[in-house]
Structure formats: structure tokens, C-alpha cells
Design a binder for these strands. Structure first.
Length: 422
RNA sequence: GGUGGGAUGGGUGAGUGGCUGAAACCAACAGUUUGCUAAACUGUCGUACGGGUAACUGUACCGCGAGUUCGAAUCUCGCUCCCACCGCCA
């Protein structure tokens, strides 16, 4: 959520920047500014009346103490009148406040100056690419066929026990999952991220804190009996550790990592690119999260991008890095890099990681702040990225490393899997 | 699931109707002292929002929401959460 102060002072910049997302918010912004002015003048009036009421109440107390009952009764009467004024003003102020907040919720984050214009994935800008795309002198199989051939993943069994999008991993397929998780966590630890094992269910306040609620309610599994939500990413529990936190000084850099299964209903995305591991309701992911001083968030984003790139280098996967255009960025993001890995047998790029900075957008909802040297409070910046999400990594590992007689495991993973090939 | 207890500022914790935005202690920060550290002493020390160039000032907040009252941290009602013990259980 954008800060109202920022809308007051940076109206034109905000409107111009949001145009990069291909949305035009001028009317909404002006409506907010208008409502805010009303809110402020009503609030001032309300506070003045409250101040008077407080004074009178004190006076009445004094009169009672000194036994002047008649004078006190007179003041009481005056109070009644002010009291009704206070009540109406109060509900007016509250209504304005609610209206402003609900409008603020509809405005996405302001894209960073470096974010390119554009409205669809084709407008994303390729920043770099790395690795070589394999070619095969036999007929390469897509990962769902390889998974079946080598008994690594059983999708049908998942359908039987749960439903589509909840596969079983078995044998070497299961061990490969565990190896990747351990590899990613180990790399993150070495890069200075503290490892957490987080709850997989969160309460409503946490969902609001990171922005899944109320906007994207239908995307999370909801356990209604206890009113808890299954996490769609470790970002939710990890970032919410810092909800309602005021860091005591400006000298901080918080780096968290965690592996969790992720649960997504993926409502409305049926039919397209959902085959095999390409889109699941439950999948595994190692997430990295950072809480940073505003001055440091640009550097932190670069570091995170380097971290993810290094993981893909070590896994010897061909990938490219895209800077997302305004139209393709997530609601809360100020700037996002996507990583795509080439999946040889499907002959297409698969998104395996998304690394974003949110600036103060999440921190504002989370009430995550720090005190500077002058003891003034400011909102922190938050960032996060997948490092990495497993299914599409597995898909491309299987597809790219296949031979006619088996599948080779990248050397860096062999210590984790305990086998060199499948 | 049952019974009982509780929720106050960074922490412990006092506070049963006005003198309380809140004692005291601890922690933290600044200063004095000091070869260094420590100790001692002095001072500062909640958050949000509004008004004001600023100094400053107003309002709200003692888990959350209503209510009683001229006036509520304090009284009443509802809710949430936490703790302890019992039951069940990995």
C-alpha cells in the first residue's frame, strides 16, 4: 500500500510512473487527495472538540471537589451538545478514512525508474543469458515422460490421493527433491541468510501483511474451521516475523531463508502450461527474504540476483534474466527480475525465480520501521526472491540432462543425491 | 475437549473513576568521572496521526470491540489471544 503522505507530495511522479504498468490512476489519485483534504479538516475539527470536552470534564471534576454542584450541572449540559457533535464528526472521519484506505488498496506499487514500459511478457527486457542450450541426436522426451519412464514422479497417484497438481515424488525423484532443497539452503546459508523452518499455516493478519489478503483471497487454501491459510510461499511467514516491528537503529541488514512447501489454488489458470511440473497446487521452494535500509535495497536486489544466477550456473542450466516491464510486474513490486531456464524437450523458457524489491509497499502494511540516528522513524524496504522453486528446475534438469540410457545429475548435486545418474 | 489464571511502554511490574501517557526497577542512549574497562553520578528515553517554517502543540492508544459516566488503564458486556493443570495424542 502506498503511503498517503507520498500521494500528497508526489502526485505527478506517481501518476507518470504507474503509467508504465499501463494503468491510469489520475482519477483515483485525485479522488484520494480530495478525500484526504476532507479527512484532515474534519479531523482537525474533531480534535478541537475533543480537546474542549477534555477541558470541560476536568473543570467539572474541580467544581465537584469544591462543592459547586450547580455550576457543574451547567457545564454538564454544555457537554451534551458538544458530545453529539463529536459523535457525528467521529463517524464522518472514520468513514472517510475507510474510503481512503480502500482506494489505496487498489493502487499497485510505483515502478522503479529503471523499470521498462510495457504491458505484456513480450515487453520484458532480457538483461543477460548464460549457458548453452543442449541439442540431442535422439528424440528428447518431455519431463512427464521421463518421470514415468524412470519412475520419478507419479501424477496419477497424486490425483487418486488428493487431486490434480499434487504429485508424488518417488525413489530417485524424491531424493532429487531433497537434494535440491539441501543444496539451495546450504548455498543461502553460505551467503549469510539465516535458515528458518516456518509454519505452513498463517493467520489472517499475516496474509494482509504481505498483501495476499484481501486482494488475492481466492489464491490461498483456507482452513475455515480455524480461519488459517496455507502459505503460497515462505515469503508470508518469513516476512511477517517483522510485522509490527520497530527496529531500534538504522544499522541493520536482515537476511532470512527458508524451505517450505507452497500451496496455490491457481484459480483461473487451468488449461495453459499446466502439464507435468509446469504448474502445481503444491510445490517446494527455498525463499530468500531481506529487510533493508532504503539506501541499501538497490544493492541488496543486485546481490540476490547474483545469488540466484550462481545457483543456476552451478546446476549448469541455460538461463536468461529478464527485467520485467511495468505491465508484467506483480502488484506489490517496485522492480522484478525473472529467471527463466530453458527446457530442451518442451522447447521453451520456464520461469524458475522471481526476485523483487518492494521498497516501502509491504513495510507500510506490515508496519515495519526503523529509527534513524535522529530518532525519526522510517519504513524499511523489503525484498524477496525464489532461490529456487523446485518443479521447473526438476523439469529442466531432467529434460536437458537426458541421454538415451539415463539422466545425468549435475556434479554439484551428486554429493546431495548420492547418485550420479538416474 | 475440561477447569482455572492472565493480557499495562524494549523487559519486569505498580496502578479499582479525575492529581496517570501512565510509578518503580532493569535495559538502552547521551554526558561527567576515567590510563582502559568497570563502577558511580546526572540527564534522556512509547507509538501513530493532525496543526505549525520551527520551537511547540492537539488528539488517540494500557489485547480488540461496544457500553456506563461530565470524566475510564481502572466499572459492565462481547470477542481474541496467551499461560497453567487435567484429558487425548505425534
Amino acid at each position: 500500500m502506498l503511503e498517503i503522505q507520498r500521494i500528497r507530495t508526489e502526485r505527478d511522479v506517481i501518476i507518470a510512473s504507474l503509467a508504465k504498468r499501463n494503468i491510469h490512476v489520475e482519477n483515483v489519485i485525485d479522488e484520494i487527495i480530495e478525500l484526504d483534504q476532507q479527512w484532515r479538516s474534519n479531523k482537525k475539527e474533531l480534535e478541537d472538540i475533543s480537546a474542549e470536552l477534555n477541558q470541560i470534564a476536568r473543570k467539572i471534576g474541580e467544581l465537584f471537589q469544591s462543592g459547586q454542584q450547580a455550576a457543574a450541572a451547567e457545564l454538564k449540559e454544555k457537554n451534551q451538545l458538544l458530545k453529539t457533535q463529536e459523535t457525528t464528526l467521529k463517524s464522518k472521519v472514520e468513514a472517510l478514512d475507510a474510503e481512503i484506505t480502500s482506494l489505496l488498496y487498489t493502487i499497485p506499487n510505483v515502478p522503479n525508474a529503471e523499470v521498462p514500459h510495457g504491458k505484456e511478457p513480450a515487453d520484458n527486457v532480457e538483461v543477460s543469458s548464460s549457458g548453452t542450450i543442449p541439442s540431442f541426436n535422439f528424440e528428447a522426451l518431455p519431463h512427464w515422460d521421463l518421470a514415468k519412464k524412470y519412475e520419478l514422479i507419479d501424477f496419477e497417484l497424486g490425483v487418486k490421493v488428493t487431486g490434480a497438481g499434487f504429485p508424488f515424488y518417488r525413489g530417485k525423484g524424491a531424493k532429487l527433491q531433497r537434494a535440491l532443497i539441501n543444496f539451495f539452503l546450504e548455498e543461502a546459508t553460505q551467503a549469510g541468510y539465516e535458515e528458518f523452518m516456518a509454519p505452513l499455516l498463517v493467520n489472517e493478519a499475516s496474509g494482509i501483511g504481505t498483501g495476499q489478503l484481501p486482494d488475492k483471497e481466492g489464491q490461498m487454501y483456507h482452513s475455515t474451521a480455524d480461519d488459517l491459510y496455507l502459505i503460497p510461499t515462505a515469503e508470508v511467514p518469513l516476512t511477517n516475523i517483522y510485522r509490527d516491528v520497530l527496529l531500534p537503529n538504522a544499522d541493520f541488514s536482515i537476511k532470512l531463508t527458508g524451505y517450505t512447501p507452497c500451496f496455490r489454488r491457481e484459480a483461473g489458470s487451468y488449461g495453459k502450461d499446466v502439464r507435468g511440473l509446469n504448474r502445481l497446487h503444491q510445490f517446494d521452494k527455498v525463499e530468500i527474504v531481506r529487510i533493508e535500509h532504503p539506501d541499501n535495497s538497490a544493492a541488496a536486489l543486485d546481490e540476490m540476483v547474483q545469488h540466484v544466477a550462481a545457483l543456476l550456473d552451478k546446476l549448469e542450466l541455460p538461463y536468461r534474466i529478464l527485467r520485467l516491464c511495468g505491465g508484467d510486474m506483480g502488484f506489490a513490486s517496485a522492480m522484478t527480475y525473472d529467471f527463466e531456464v530453458y527446457s530442451a524437450a518442451q522447447d521453451k523458457w520456464l520461469e524458475v525465480s522471481s526476485v523483487s524489491r518492494f521498497d516501502t509497499f509491504q513495510a507500510n502494511r506490515l508496519k515495519l520501521r526503523f529509527k534513524d540516528d535522529n530518532k525519526k522513524t522510517h519504513l524499511c524496504h523489503t525484498l524477496n526472491g525464489s532461490a529456487l522453486a523446485l518443479p521447473r528446475i526438476v523439469a529442466s534438469l531432467l529434460e536437458n540432462n537426458q541421454t538415451e540410457n539415463g539422466i545425468n545429475i549435475p556434479s554439484v548435486l551428486q554429493a546431495y543425491t548420492g547418485f550420479k545418474s538416474i
